[in-house]
Design a protein around this nucleic acid. Structure first.
Lengths: 192, 192
DNA sequence: GTGGATATCTAGCGACACTAGCAATCCTGT
DNA sequence: ACAGGATTGCTAGTGTCGCTAGATATCCAC
């Protein structure tokens, strides 16, 4: 009885070890450095052990990404709720989003760029993904005309994501991100 | 003398054959299907021949992408110049950009998502890349306040690119792209 | 015609994600 | 206490990837 429980605890512990190691490796050396061999070596188990935890490499990336959505949702919510007025809240959410992307490039990449088993816009979309977008919508509804909130949130999200990846690949001038945010806010929350 | 010229023509012909085949394969089956073995088989030469034309697979993807920038610049320019007024021109450029991304998903991916040797925002940035962004700026200057044009172009480009990749991965509702474009235009060219 | 340059191929390297099949370990039922 | 079966993890492989060394065939200049 308790033996099974201990086994289960050890399994979960190792599960977390795999995810933590994958994320740490990815942030330190990029996802290309996260190979099954390297991962197995780092956790001090053999390669096949990984497959008793996850269906494959994509599933590992997906699990890391899911954790990222939970973290992002939390920071976005905190930023939104600690703001004084709707416009400040939208600004806080936008800046928090960009800070998150800047501070966790590999994690952000797993969430939005890499191929993972995570389903979007479907019935099986995991909760954390919906909640993340929900935070953005919540910040937008307060400044957008009624009915347009979700649409405006999609456009703003697109602009944020687009600016992140275009800047990351050297296609935008990094020093001007602040100005771009100001411009975006001026267009979508003009009264602020 | 003319023998060397014939050789050179054949080399250029084969160069084009490699690029055309890579692009066709990528659009038909995705870039993951474009392996050096498959590419060699399709052009009916051995693998090493590819390396006498390009430094590696990334260089092939980069060459395909470069052609894409030339094409995109051309279609954007045509769309912009055939519009009646500045706002219509911006709308035409935006819709053309999105149509291009939708019609050539693999090519677009090579241009903006995949890792290639193409340098951005640097002294060695190839002309076609600069020209493409130049077309977008040209469309924006006519509707944006003086001094803000380039910044606004970056934000709009970010929104376009973000919406393309987010929609492509199922993160946005495809049917509403038209509405998102309308909203974007309403915010950046309100007088239209 | 022959020697040297050029063009192309066969064969193979190391690394990749992933897996079959075996060995050791552990828990259960008697 | 201990045999039998399930579980757990390993070794050793498969097939594929990008890429390349070295051999071979072809071609042109003298």
């Amino acid at each position: 009885m308790s033996i099974r429980a201990r086994r289960e605890r050890e399994y979960q512990r190792r599960n977390q070890l795999i995810l933590d190691t994958a994320r740490r490796l990815a942030e330190a050396e990029g996802w290309h450095a996260v190979t099954t061999r390297r991962l197995a070596e780092e956790i001090e188990y053999s390669q096949p052990v990984l497959y008793s935890h996850f269906h494959g490499k994509e599933a590992i990336v997906g699990a890391v990404a899911l954790k990222g959505f939970e973290e992002l949702t939390g920071t976005l919510r905190a930023a939104r709720k600690s703001a004084d007025d709707p416009t400040a809240a939208l600004r806080a959410v936008i800046e928090t989003y960009l800070d998150f992307a800047g501070a966790n490039p590999a994690l952000y990449s797993a969430m939005f760029e890499l191929s993972t088993p995570l389903a979007f816009a479907s019935a099986e979309t995991p909760g954390p993904l919906i909640e993340t977008f929900g935070e953005l919508i919540a910040a937008v509804v307060a400044v957008a005309p009624a009915g347009d909130a979700e649409l405006a949130a999609e456009v703003i999200w697109g602009a944020l994501h687009g600016m992140v990846v275009l800047e990351r690949s050297g296609r935008l001038r990094p020093a001007l991100m602040r100005e771009r945010v100001d411009l975006l806010l001026a267009r979508f929350a003009p009264e602020g």
